[in-house]
Design a protein around this nucleic acid. Structure first.
Lengths: 96, 96
DNA sequence: TAAAGATATTCGAATATGATTATATGATAA
DNA sequence: TTATCATATAATCATATTCGAATATCTTTA
């Protein structure tokens, strides 16, 4: 009897993690390289705790990782080529 | 001052519409061609109203469209090549 | 037109998400 | 060690999602 829904859980979680304007924006910024929270704050219109929450969700979803850099914390994509491909796809289809 | 979040709204909505296991499954099935609700019901483990709700959301999001076919209603992807590409991407990256 | 089959809509309960505010933590420099 | 800068967490509230049950709406055929 057919395919099990289980197979789609991971992909659904992945897409869900990306399905927020702020998070999409963050990921798109990170697609061009590692950035610290402060940089991100300048690019994204949201306050600090909100950005931090979104970053934490992205990290939990396995999309980004982070490294302490002196006083600052920098975030980067765990799979940059993959994300680039996804964003190119979205752009090609006029979704961004 | 940076890029506006507005630009990401459409893409976020699109991804959100896809970010549910049942809907992903439905869309993946439709990627190989038009299917009637009954066919979909056989493939997806969910009851009829639930499937109908998900289909309606997909339609509102502009991802699918439908055509009455006698007593039945058939759903199809509005942009099949695009979805195929997206799913190939997900498969390539072991997300499905 | 009535019955039956196929699909859609509505509603309520449970749960999840997102924003804001306040507070806490960690790292460095003085 | 204290002060300060940078970031994270917690608590709260408002809103959104999801599902199941009940019911409604087509569409066709008898």
């Amino acid at each position: 009897m057919a395919i099990v829904k289980y197979n789609y859980l991971n992909a659904a979680k992945f897409l869900k993690a990306l399905s927020h304007p702020t998070r999409l924006m963050i990921v798109n910024e990170l697609a061009s390289g590692k950035k610290c929270v402060n940089d991100i704050k300048e690019l994204v219109q949201a306050n600090q705790p909100n950005i931090s929450q979104h970053l934490s969700l992205l990290k939990l979803s396995g999309i980004v990782d982070s490294r302490q850099n002196g006083k600052m914390k920098c975030y980067f994509l765990k799979d940059e080529p993959m994300m680039r491909e996804l964003f190119n796809n979205l752009k090609k289809n006029k979704l961004i």
